[in-house]
Structures are given as C-alpha cells and as structure tokens.
Amino acid sequence: MSDYYATVAALLCGMAVIGLFRAHDLLHRILALNVLASAVFLLLVTLARTESGTDPVPHVMVLTGIVVAVSTTAAALALTIRAYERRRQREDER
C-alpha cells in the first residue's frame, strides 16, 4: 500500500510543479506551493512505513512541516494583500 500512495505522491508532485510555474496569479502560486508541500509530506510518510514497524521521525518532520507551511502561507498571503493595496493606492493617486 505504501508504493501505491508513493505513486500518488509522485503524481501530485509533478502536477504541483507544473501548476506552480504555469500560474500567473500569486494566489494560485501559493496554492500550488501548498499542494507541493502536501505531496512531499505524503512521500515522507510512505517512506516511514518499513517492515520493522512505523518510523516516528518522518511523522514528526511532517507535523512540524504542516505548521511551517501554514506560517509561510500566511506570510505570503499577507505580502500579496499588501502589494495589491499599495498598487491600488498608486493607481488612485495617478
């Protein structure tokens, strides 16, 4: 079953990379980065399942990764909103 989900993770990785470079919209880029992060997390957790039992270290890496991902998403979204508001102010002044 690990191999099956690892294949899904690899497919998602490929899709997310294409989506990331194809997107013109900043919000779509942030979404693509998040999908890419989920795909990498999935890959890590599938690697954690070995014959000798489940390895907790990748699980911990994914847990911290999820929290870091939400922090970077919030920071990127805040920057996007501010950039847009500045641009609108400039256009209003003109």
Binding site: D3, L11, S52
Partner: peptide, 27 residues
C-alpha cells in the same frame, strides 16, 4: 512541461526503490 513530466515519470519509477530511513528500532 515535457521535462516536468519526464521527471515525474522518473520519480514514480524510482519511489518504490527509495531506501527507507528505518529509525524505528533505534527510537
């Protein structure tokens, strides 16, 4: 796009052979 597709296919092919970290015993 073609190079991204090729790398995805390569990743799918190579993923089942990736070495597992396997720190379960040590933990």
């Amino acid at each position: 796009v073609i190079s991204a597709c090729i790398s995805t296919a390569w990743l799918i092919a190579v993923v089942p052979q990736l070495p597992s970290p396997g720190l379960a015993g040590e933990i």
